[in-house]
Every structure is written in C-alpha cells, then in structure tokens.
C-alpha cells in the first residue's frame, strides 16, 4: 500500500479500519515535531517519549474522535499534551485517554491560536510577551496555546488550580495593557 500518498485525515480513516501501516506512517510524519514540542513542556525526556507513545496509542484506539475540521497536527498536539498531563498526574501509571476527552478539543482553541499567530507575525505581541514574567508566560502558553483546562494546566505546571486562574487573569490583563500602550505609541 502506498500510504505515503495519503493526507493525514485519510490516514486517520485507514487507522479507523484497523490499518497498522497507516498508523506507522502517521508516527513517521509526526513523531519528531511532537517530541520536540513535548520536550519544551517537560525537562524529563523519558516522560516526553512516554507521552508521545501514549498519544499514538490513543489515536489507534479512537481515530474517529478527529472530527475532520481543522488540522490533524493541532489535534495530535492536543492529544499529546493531555497524555503528558495525564502522565504527570499519575507518574507511575499511564491513564488511557477517553475518546470524549479527545473530542473535547474545541475549535475555539484553534481560533485563539490563529489570532495569536497573526498577532505574533505582526510583531506587537512579541514585545508584549517579552514583558511578562516566565511564570505568567508559562500559564498563558498552557491555557491559550496548548488549549488546556485550568486543571490540566495545573498538573502540567505543578501549581495549584487557583494559581493558574489568577496568573492567567493577570497575564491577560498585562498583555492587553501592553498591547494597548504599544498601539498608542505607534
């Protein structure tokens, strides 16, 4: 079979039919960048590798949770980061991600990302971000870029949920202030 010619979403269709070759191709295409990005979320390289493994296993078990809108890459990252969170939560035991968790990835995450992407490429957000402390940036990254819930972000960052909420609030208002003042200056 010439799986190399298929698009990512076609691969997911084949995986749903139990085609291991399709999953192998998906692993081939996405392992590297997912691993690099996971390593940016945890200093523990083994943990990142385990989360990646869990993510592909989760894809194999419920490939239909991909709704067909949006990019497979974004969907995969959503699974991978949640597997990392779940590994962090129970370091001894991986928790199989349930399919409803997979499909809970809302398209709003993508749109927030898109907005931000546009903004980053325009440069002003870059300056605004630089003005935030690392702690605030981390929270923003987990909640906005990775699309995690407050609880998931708390597990990922190892801080209480209340702290995530307050830091996210502060980060967003600071970002807004910075953007407004930057706009005003230019």
């Amino acid at each position: 079979m010439f799986v190399q010619q298929f698009s990512d979403s076609e691969l997911l269709g084949a995986i749903a039919q139990g085609d291991e070759a399709a999953l192998r191709e998906l692993v081939e295409r996405h392992s590297a960048w997912l691993l690099l990005r996971l390593r940016r979320r945890t200093p523990d390289q083994d943990l990142a590798a385990e989360a990646l493994h869990d993510a592909f296993v989760a894809v194999w078990r419920s490939p239909r949770s991909f709704r067909g809108d949006g990019d497979v890459g974004a969907w995969l990252w959503g699974i991978a980061i949640r597997q990392l969170v779940s590994r962090l939560r129970k370091r001894a035991q991986p928790v199989p991600m349930e399919s409803r968790m997979l499909s809970a990835l809302s398209p709003t995450v993508r749109s927030a990302e898109d907005e931000l992407l546009v903004a980053v490429e325009h440069g002003s957000v870059g300056d605004a971000l630089r003005s935030l402390s690392p702690e605030l940036r981390q929270v923003l990254q987990a909640t906005v870029i990775d699309g995690l819930s407050t609880r998931e972000a708390a597990h990922l960052l190892g801080i209480p949920q209340g702290t995530v909420k307050s830091r996210a609030r502060i980060a967003k208002s600071k970002l807004r202030e910075q953007l407004i003042s930057l706009e005003a200056r230019s």
Binding site: D71, G73, E113, L116, V120, L129
Partner: peptide, 20 residues
C-alpha cells in the same frame, strides 16, 4: 525567546513541510 518559540509552535501545527 518566548515570542519566537510561540511563533514556531503555532507555525508547526499548520505546516507539513516544517513538521517534516
């Protein structure tokens, strides 16, 4: 730096060439 990292990650999600 944070903004560049963010930019790389946002870009990766939608760019098969860079993922490759």
């Amino acid at each position: 730096e944070p903004a560049a990292e963010l930019s790389v990650e946002s870009h990766l999600v939608g760019c098969p060439e860079c993922r490759s």
